[in-house]
Write a protein that binds this DNA or RNA. Structure first.
Lengths: 341, 341
DNA sequence: CTGTTAGCGCCTTCAA
DNA sequence: TTGAAGGCGCTAACAG
């Protein structure tokens, strides 16, 4: 791989001249510039960002640590991050933690070794392991959704509001017996959505029956299992709030298998706004989440910090929007009467 | 950020000694080693991979260029790549090309500047722009699925076999009028699946009616539109082979809206093996694809090349497997008769 | 307008 | 068992 020195020799100039034509960093006579450019082209010279980084103490690379890029929500976040980063000339280093603190810590260390300019962290459940690593270095860090430390920027989703909105919707349709299909209890997002659900129920004077909460894996499979369990309850719910669309899709299937029609016998509301949730049968009512924007905003903020600007500490949670489609409707009359009696 | 020099000073030794305790690269007396280690810990020293890279001409980083990480198949591939890379101590640099040659070329250049040790390339439709860049450098490159140059390793999917298997399945059920919901015609994968479909049809003496092929965007939306078009045909098909599960899901919805029951009135077979395709209503019959394995194998191969081993040029296409679920069945009798008349 | 030089942080002979 | 020194490829004073 050609080096600047070789280019300089071949063009009969000094390396600094080559450097300056490349970076437009000082006046160079036109004929020299042309000659240098020609040699660069001829030798297919591409400057080494690693040498540059060593000199400038900047890599123009940002680390992104996520639990699992296979989760559609994470994939969308990643896209928002990558778009913003690319527009600013930055490249992404991607790490999947799989909620494994060991692995996450190892990844983080690798990123720091590689001297990333900044980090977008979706901490998952493992906060404690990362704190010491982060503390020692002064790498700008922004948090996506999962909180880790109060003195870091955080842009997340307002899960409580999401849970509340979904549940209110069900309540307004007339449902009295509402169950919640929740993700793993250790995930804060799940807990918050559940809290929002509970608040709506409390306000309606109904309360959330602990038996009506199923904690399962946050995917179709999990949603399927959880819904099956909930639908087998003695006083089965007439409506389900699933904390994610994937789980909701699993629930739709469980309802189908139980011989229940959605929405006639059972209403289901999800949360996330996946594209395919608009194409399920029935089309899923859901609370969309501005995930792409979250990734984009997060990255824009991180880049500000990297540039040394000192925007005020940002801590906010974006709100989604209820989209009513075909999976939610008024409760069946019989059940309604039964519940009222 | 602490440097090795600072550590050396604080520990009262030379930098070379520090280097050697870090890398276990020559004998160091136990007390010195302990002292150095203590200082490292105290100063939270983390060695700089960029300096190391400059010296060793290795970054332990591999670039990954994909069309769009939001596509579930790509996300899965990415996961396979990341897993294999992480296990070997490598980190991923992710780039989304969005099928935009300009952007892809810019990304590739960025990766080369950063001196990635190797590249996993999902070329999308833009091959020509990348060739010159690749040619100049001698970065090991492995191709995922999309072919670009014959002298590069390629591990892909056997799309032809996939199309064939799906169509055979439909044929064996007794369908005579089979349509194909295809992705953009410029995607080789689409063309190959279509070719497999055509071969099966030809073998059965039926042939593929051009009117029965709809080229649409490879997502739910596209599948929905395409299916609507196909189902509105004069002699509507009794079965649909969708070149991806996402499109198949969209087709399920279109059928529903057209008042057709799946599989009683219409059979649908997808391809990919998404988790959620097992939870749709009805559950989708599909041809699964070993995408994770593809990513894993590709990366293992790339790492071999990076290490300088010279495994024989590899060119292969992995086969998926037909999974029959609930979206495919024998054609409706009336239509069968109509088609036969 | 152009060249010389000193390092960025690390590894690695070569000496001691 | 340890240290000194040169150099990886590049940038940025500092001279000329």
């Amino acid at each position: 791989m050609a080096t600047m020195k070789q280019v300089a020799e071949r063009a009969g100039v000094s390396t600094s001249t080559v450097s300056h034509v490349i970076n437009n960093t000082r006046a160079v006579s036109e004929d020299v510039r042309q000659r240098v450019l020609a040699v660069i082209d001829e030798m297919r010279y591409i400057p080494s960002a690693v040498a540059r980084s060593l000199k400038n103490d900047k890599t123009h690379t940002i680390g992104v640590s996520v639990p699992d890029n296979t989760d559609p929500a994470i994939a969308e976040l990643l896209r928002g991050i990558e778009d913003a980063a690319f527009a600013a000339g930055y490249t992404i280093m991607l790490c999947n933690g799989y909620d494994d603190p060991q692995r996450q810590a190892a990844h983080l260390r690798g990123l720091i070794e590689r001297r990333i300019d900044g980090l977008v962290l979706v901490a998952g459940s493992a906060r404690d392991e990362l704190a010491p690593l982060l503390a020692g270095q002064r790498v700008p860090v922004v948090l996506a959704d999962h909180d880790v430390a109060a003195d870091l920027d955080l842009i997340g989703l307002d899960h409580e509001a999401t849970g509340y909105a979904a549940t209110r919707h069900l309540l307004e349709l007339g449902h009295k017996r509402i169950a919640c299909l929740a993700g793993p209890a250790r995930h804060p997002a799940t807990r918050e959505r559940l809290a929002g659900c509970r608040r709506a129920l409390d306000e309606a004077g109904l309360g959330l029956d602990p038996a009506c909460v199923a904690h399962v894996a946050p995917d179709c499979q999990g949603g399927h299992e959880g819904a099956r369990r909930l639908l087998a309850l003695d006083r089965a719910p007439t409506a389900l709030f699933a904390c994610s669309d994937l789980m909701a899709l699993g629930a739709l299937r469980a309802a189908q298998e139980a011989g229940l029609r959605v929405p006639e016998d059972l209403s289901v509301v999800g949360a996330c706004g996946l594209e395919m949730a608009a194409f399920s049968t029935p089309r899923l009512s859901t609370v969309t989440q501005p995930i792409y924007q979250m990734g984009h905003a997060l990255t824009a903020l991180l880049l500000q910090r990297i540039r040394g600007e000192q925007p005020p500490r940002r801590r906010e949670r974006l709100r989604g929007q209820l989209v009513v489609r075909d999976s939610s409707a008024r409760p069946p009359v019989r059940r309604l009467l039964a519940a009222a009696s």
